[in-house]
């Protein structure tokens, strides 16, 4: 499967950047506007899925290969766990304690600022990375999978 027609390829080469930027926006502004890590991560994954549908699986794999995607997935999960453990180490309240907000920004009125809310943007970025990589991974793996050939030929 080598992709679709030239019309689809041209349009998707313009649109993929906008989709990717929109995903980053949704992730970064998750603590201010509707959205957040999960929705933004799915949008990030869908930009790569558009690339895969338009240009074929090989082209998408050149941009984000399967080992890299699985490493990004693990990095996202570890980052989220690290945020939680930092809360355990740095504060009295324990696991997932919002230490940045409570320590350094307590009492300041920084509502609607991009840099606010302590650990919440960090968690959003971690979840966005994790969800985006893992959903791209699952589509890549599903499109690689061929039930007819895999049972017969063992490489």
């Amino acid at each position: 499967m080598k992709g679709m027609t030239i019309i689809v390829k041209t349009i998707s080469s313009w649109v993929k950047v906008l989709i990717f930027l929109f995903g980053i926006y949704i992730v970064l502004f998750g603590h201010l506007t509707p959205g957040g890590g999960f929705a933004g991560g799915v949008i990030l994954a869908s930009s790569y899925v558009l690339l895969m549908l338009a240009y074929g699986r090989e082209f998408a794999e050149e941009n984000l290969s399967l080992p890299v995607a699985s490493k990004l997935d693990s990095v996202g999960a570890l980052l989220f766990a690290a945020v939680a453990l930092c809360g355990l180490c740095c504060g009295a309240a324990g696991f997932f304690f919002n230490f940045i907000q409570q320590r350094w920004f307590a009492g300041q009125d920084r509502a609607f600022d991009l840099v606010s809310a302590g650990t919440i943007p960090l968690s959003n970025i971690a979840i966005g990375l994790k969800v985006g990589a893992s959903l791209f991974l699952i589509i890549l793996v599903l499109s690689m999978f061929r039930p007819d050939t895999s049972t017969n030929e063992k490489e």
């Binding site: 998750g30 603590h31 890590g37 997932f96 907000q101 609607f112 606010s116 809310a117 919440i120 968690s123």
Partner: peptide, 19 residues
């Protein structure tokens, strides 16, 4: 006031109920 997040949904799912 407690979490500093303008989006209350984010403050619930990533702070109060982050576990």
């Amino acid at each position: 006031e407690k979490t500093g997040a303008a989006n209350l949904v984010a403050s619930v799912i990533l702070d109060y109920r982050a576990y």
